[in-house]
Design a protein around this nucleic acid. Structure first.
Length: 570
RNA sequence: CGGGGUGUAGCUCAGACUGGUAGAGCACUGCGUUCGGGACGCAGGGGCCGCAGGUUCAAAUCCUGUCACCCCGACCA
């Protein structure tokens, strides 16, 4: 490809509407343009990267025995009404009407549509198992799209769905897909962790997320230093707390103290001059059945809603509104506490046996100090693992390592769905005994466009993108330093032709620009291998090979260049 | 949806408080010089100042409304 004809409008300045580095660099490198919030144009260079990710995913899915199909982006409402998600999904689902006023939506995910195809075609256990996937543009009308391609509204996704006669076979396929995903992200040249995950709104009971490690990631992952266990901090298991100063604290008298307008743990902590870990944080939640529940964690801990849901065994919980809080506690938000509270209480394990603690007094502008579990509260309290994991927590799986916290970008997720959708939509098969049974399902997603952005978040420097070789829009960039030197131009062209003959298309910067401009654009665009052809080198019979990642330069005899490059491209 | 911010040339931004009819740098076009890390000179082209109302002799500037985009929050593969 000749740069002189390439449509790659590079920019010197960061666009004002971009915040994260992948968004800035993709726009500056002329790979994408924003056309509306969360919606982007893919320009030629960007599309090549996207296709590289897509092709790796496709090859590995096919290798794993899945079959590609393509479902419609615009889906009839009926299927969504059947699964109840027409009502449950909310505003994130983009709805539209056709000319006959019939309801449709733009598919944000395709469980309903694929289940419809399968229920209409699969009759017998002999037709199973099946694994069907597609690569398709999805639309989710996010409340707040941000971070460029990392959380767009329109995005490219690979979604696969598998269908089985029983749970055991579905779990087999789940593991099979898990391994395929490991191959995919390894082939993309990404540093990632597969972590245990919450199953969220899609439902099901077993799930792993594939997280690309990057400091800018939205998710926090706890990974054990000794074993292979890793999980989202919201879910990372925590064992019984070791006895510490808080439970060995001597018993003191319960006292009511005035704390005017001191609502947050930090406020009260500094007002009373007590460390935050001596506080019992009391959060009032509303459950899916509408009833209130109080959740307790220590002042220095963060409550995990996912763990709370699991402890309560309910579909969802949400923080109660101010008037509900007032009804339950008799006080404004900020003064709740477990003592004398007339509501079910779930407390984190670390609060078991706590003494000399502080909490809200269920009365405006008042807190309690000297609070003691067992003496002052405890009846009707259940204890559970409720808090998010933090660095240094002991891993209960192996009992040896401790957690380190990494930031991650979720690029893929695998779910065991069970019969949630097959039951809702009546997808059944006849078993060998002629009995009608619901089909067991799994689903497996990869954010293709998000993976492209995650690669940049993980791999860039002040000068621009550093693509992993497998994702790079071109494997090599060739820069003839001067266009007026016939030998330089000819050498560059011959090298380009030699590479083409070996099946690799290089990007040749044949623009009539000064060398500095070409070097700057090359760094920005981030092709991992750069060959500089210049007069000085030719006099020595060499071209220079510069590695984008570490800046190292090798001098290569002209004749050896094609072979050496092919070797490095791999 | 709540809070905050920004809309002026392709890009990054001045100008607004104090109303008088549009600017800079980069990019672009032409000529010349230059040519291995974003060159220089000269000469050019390009904007209904987001949109719609209003005030005024006069509005980018003041007022009202509206739309778009960005950030924080709630929410979320």
């Amino acid at each position: 490809m000749r740069f002189s004809t390439l449509f790659a409008p590079t920019l010197k300045d960061d666009p004002t509407d971009a915040e994260v580095v992948s968004h800035k660099l993709l726009v500056r490198a002329g790979m994408i343009r924003q056309i509306a919030r969360g919606i982007y144009d893919y320009l030629p260079l960007g599309l090549r990267v996207l296709k590289n990710v897509e092709n790796i995913v496709r090859e590995e899915m096919n290798r794993a025995g899945a079959q590609e199909l393509l479902l419609p982006a615009v889906c009839p409402a009926e299927l969504w009404q059947e699964s109840k998600r027409w009502d449950v999904y909310g505003k994130e689902l983009l709805r539209l009407k056709d000319r006959h006023e019939r309801d449709f939506c733009i598919g944000p995910t395709h469980e309903e549509v694929i289940t419809d195809v399968v229920r209409s075609a699969v009759r017998s256990y002999r037709d199973l198992p099946l694994n069907l996937y597609q690569v398709q543009t999805k639309f989710r009308d996010e409340i707040r799209p941000r971070f460029g391609l990392m959380r767009g509204r329109e995005f490219l996704m690979k979604d696969a769905y598998s269908f089985h006669t029983d749970k055991a076979d579905c779990e087999r396929e789940y593991r099979h897909m898990f391994e395929a995903y490991e191959r995919i992200f390894r082939r993309c040249g990404l540093e990632f962790r597969a972590v245990e995950a919450d199953t969220g709104a899609i439902g099901g009971s077993l799930s792993h997320e594939f997280q690309v490690l990057a400091d800018s990631g939205e998710d926090a992952i706890a990974a054990c230093s000794a074993c292979s266990y890793a999980a989202n901090v919201e879910l990372a298991a925590l064992g019984e707390p070791t006895p510490d100063a808080l439970t060995e604290e001597v018993s003191v008298e319960l006292q009511r103290v005035a704390t005017p307008s001191q609502r947050t743990v930090e406020d009260v902590s500094s007002y009373l001059d007590l460390p935050v870990d001596r506080f019992i944080k009391t959060l009032i939640f509303e459950k899916d059945d509408g009833s209130p529940v109080a959740a307790l964690v220590r002042g220095d801990q963060t409550l995990s809603e996912a763990k709370l849901r699991a402890a309560l065994g309910c579909e969802w919980v949400r923080l109660a509104e101010a008037d509900t809080v007032h009804e339950v506690t008799g006080a404004s938000v900020g003064f709740a506490g477990p003592v004398g509270l007339d509501a079910p209480i779930v407390a984190d394990l670390s609060l078991h046996g706590i003494r000399g603690a502080a909490s809200g007094a269920n009365s405006d502008d008042e807190h309690l100090v000297g609070v003691e579990h067992g003496r002052d509260f405890g009846t009707g309290v259940t204890f559970a693992d409720l808090r998010e994991a933090v660095a240094g927590d002991r891993c209960p799986r192996c009992g040896e390592g401790t957690y380190a916290i990494h930031r991650g970008i979720e690029v893929g997720q695998v779910f065991y769905l069970g019969t949630k959708y097959s039951n809702a939509l009546g997808a059944t098969y006849l078993d060998a005994e002629g009995q009608t049974k619901p089909i067991e399902m799994g689903c497996y997603g990869i954010g293709i466009s998000r993976t492209m952005a995650a690669a940049i978040e993980q791999s860039h420097d002040d000068d621009g993108i550093i693509w992993p070789q497998p994702l790079s829009p071109y494997p090599v960039e060739i820069i003839p330093v001067s266009l007026t030197d016939a030998a330089v131009v000819e050498t560059a062209e011959k090298l380009d032709a030699a590479l083409r003959e070996k099946g690799h298309e290089a990007l040749v910067d044949d623009r009539d620009e000064r060398a500095g401009v070409k070097f700057k654009d090359a760094d920005l665009i981030g092709i991992p291998l750069r060959v500089t052809v210049g007069k000085k080198g030719l006099e020595k019979g060499i071209v220079e090979l510069k590695h984008r990642a570490d800046g190292t330069v090798e001098e290569i005899p002209i004749g050896e260049a094609p072979a050496r490059l092919v070797e490095k491209i791999g």
